[in-house]
Design a protein around this nucleic acid. Structure first.
Length: 572
RNA sequence: AGGGGAUUAGUGUAACGGUAGCACGAAUGGUUCUGGUCCAUUUAGUCGGGGUUCGAAUCCCUGAUCCCCUGCCA
């Protein structure tokens, strides 16, 4: 079945949207938003949210989705993140058209709304220190107690708040709080802070402001100003919804509906921006776009296609309970897309020299190879064949076990698109290491088929020694050794103790077919019988090719080998 | 005696009182000039206990388990 064509999944969020459309709750409008804080790079978990928000907008007539930066905390946010986020959303294939917004653009409006709330007697300036406020807040089981400043007059509050904005008070000396209910079992309703004083430079507003709005106060207003219909966020904000509703109701402002869904978890992966930042800052990886990172930029550099990621997001569904998706599902979506769309090439990662003894010394055959068996339109190309070749070292065994179908002394195999060859001799060095093979070829099998109908059990990839290009190949494995990287053995250890020391393996001296000379940065290929690879977009040059392994092909031989080894060790 | 949310094969999800289905994974076989792809088959589930009903994953009661909430983060 072609999962790309599978119809749009129905989930509880889409059901709510459909119901609201039916009852004409928002005049038939559907307007969502993706509201990242620009304090890190986007990752595959964000892709789930992006596909949900932009997806819902795209599926409904006239539906819109805004890209909005929730830049209300100047201490953590940077322009670099603003830029990368836009690049990533675009690369994933979505468009916010002309609706690029910043929460910081609404600061003035938010200020006026705050004045309105103060005037209504529903907000007050509080001078408690953060420690005192924490004490006053009470605990999960016990109610809080009122701040001594709770009953300040409207006039005094207005004056104090104006002076907060004017910069008359130092950081942390005062806050503006909503006057709600210090007894509420929901801690978020115990007179939450709306504004704090922060004499910090904001990446967009500079030093225009020294008071900054808190999330709960700001976010609903942002949604309201943009006339969002469905404000989709993650589960941990469920407890904040009463506050979201309270602010908008007290203000009598346009009121979107907040809906919470479960964030994505993936096996062998961390999704916390804080932890990802820790890996980058601590040089555990080569940056946000390291191909081992679950960031969109990392996946892109690794060779993922946007289609694969979008299809993955479609398959995982949307729900209200936490779950952890098997990374194998992501890789399945990847292979499915790459299999259909990547041109094939031959590349020998771990070369073993082969001399075809009965092949003429200076002859070169130009053999025709299929570019993509899944796509006839991709056409064919010529691959040069000559007397000295390289094959994959692991495609030869001197003493092959059962079920090993590849080359061995005296055995005949096919060289893909070329000839049948038979191994006649094995050359070893002083350590007994195989360094060269001698074979004979059957000229009648040119192109790869035997006119007498003779069968071989294996087809090997190869390159011509005189024509091939050298390349570096980077093999990637899971960044963590544990399904759940936070599952740490020792007290005091953290997720970094589960980092996989073999997450990157660099292979030098790989031999690739000459057609790859013109491969463009980021270009994706299937190296036949091995996996999907792409030209590294940062380090590859025409003189020094670098390929990243995006994902290996499924490998049943590896499974058989594992079984055989398991059986062997059982017998012992 | 805090509040909120949730629980369907190994994993992720569907079924909205009417045959528990799909995908991934795993296993087996077939096809194949990639041990890939493709095809076929198999595997395996409603958190427990009560009820309501002709009929319950779905409604009610009850218990268990998991997640979130005491930042001047979002």
């Amino acid at each position: 079945m072609n999962t790309n064509d599978s119809k749009t999944p129905t989930d509880f969020v889409r059901s709510i949207v459909a119901d609201d459309l039916k009852t004409n709750k928002y005049d038939g409008r559907v307007h969502t938003r993706f509201p990242p804080e620009p304090n890190g790079y986007l990752h595959i978990g964000h892709a789930k949210s992006i596909c949900l928000n932009f997806g819902i907008a795209a599926e409904n007539d006239g539906g819109k989705c805004n890209l909005r930066f929730d830049d209300t905390n100047p201490c953590k946010e940077e322009q670099e993140y603003v830029d990368s986020i836009q690049e990533d959303v675009r690369w994933l294939g979505w468009s916010w058209e002309d609706r690029l917004y910043f929460a910081s653009d609404y600061f003035e409006q938010m200020y006026e709304y705050a004045v309105a709330l103060i005037t209504k007697g529903k907000a007050y300036v509080c001078d408690l220190t953060s420690e005192e406020m924490s004490e006053h807040r009470g605990s999960l089981k016990n109610g809080g107690k009122a701040s001594p400043h709770r009953e300040r007059s409207v006039e005094e509050n207005l004056d104090l708040f104006r002076r907060m904005r004017a910069g008359e008070f130092p950081d942390g000396s005062r806050v503006l709080r909503a006057k709600i209910d210090m007894e509420s079992p929901n801690l978020n309703m115990r007179d939450p802070i709306m504004y704090r004083i922060l004499h910090a430079e904001h990446h967009r507003t500079g030093d225009d402001w020294c008071i900054y709005p808190m999330y709960d106060w700001a976010h609903g207003l942002e949604d309201s100003v943009e006339k969002i219909t469905h404000s989709i966020c993650t589960l941990e904000f469920e407890n904040h919804r009463p506050l979201y509703d309270w602010f908008l109701d007290e203000l009598g402002a346009y009121h979107p509906r907040q809906i919470e869904f479960a964030r994505l978890n993936l096996t062998y992966t961390i999704m916390s921006k804080r932890k990802l930042l820790e890996l980058v800052a601590g040089d555990y990886v080569g940056g946000w776009s390291d191909p081992r990172m679950p960031t969109i930029s990392g996946l892109r550099r690794r060779g993922y296609s946007p289609e694969a990621i979008r299809n993955f997001c479609k398959l995982i569904g949307v729900n209200k309970f936490n779950s952890t998706v098997d990374i194998a599902l992501l890789e399945h979506c990847l292979r499915e897309d790459l299999n259909k769309n990547s041109p094939r090439a031959m590349a020998v990662l771990n070369p073993l020299k082969v001399v075809i003894d009965n092949y003429p010394e200076d002859q070169v055959d130009e053999l025709e190879a299929v570019n993509n068996p899944e796509d006839p339109a991709a056409g064919t190309r010529k691959v040069p064949f000559s007397k000295v070749l390289y094959i994959e070292r692991e495609d030869f065994m001197e003493d092959p076990p059962k079920k090993f179908f590849r080359l061995a002394p005296g055995r005949e195999v096919r060289l893909r698109y070329a000839y049948y060859v038979t191994c006649t001799d094995v050359v070893k060095d002083e350590n007994g290491e195989v360094v060269e093979l001698h074979c004979t070829y059957d000229p009648a099998t040119r192109g790869g088929d035997s006119p007498d109908g003779r069968k071989v059990k294996a087809t090997l990839h190869w390159v011509s020694a005189d024509h091939c290009l050298d390349a570096e190949v980077r093999l990637y494995n899971n960044l963590f050794t544990k399904e759940n990287p936070d599952d740490v053995a020792d007290e005091g250890a953290d997720f970094k103790s589960n980092l996989n020391p073999d997450s990157l393996e660099v292979l030098a001296g790989c031999k690739v077919e000459p057609s790859l000379a013109t491969a463009e940065a980021g270009g994706r290929f299937q190296f036949e019988r091995q996996g999907y690879f792409c030209v590294d977009s940062e380090d590859s040059t025409p003189d020094a090719l670098v390929f990243n392994r995006t994902v290996a092909l499924r490998d049943t031989w590896a499974k058989i080998q594992k079984q055989q080894q398991a059986q062997k060790s059982q017998k012992k």
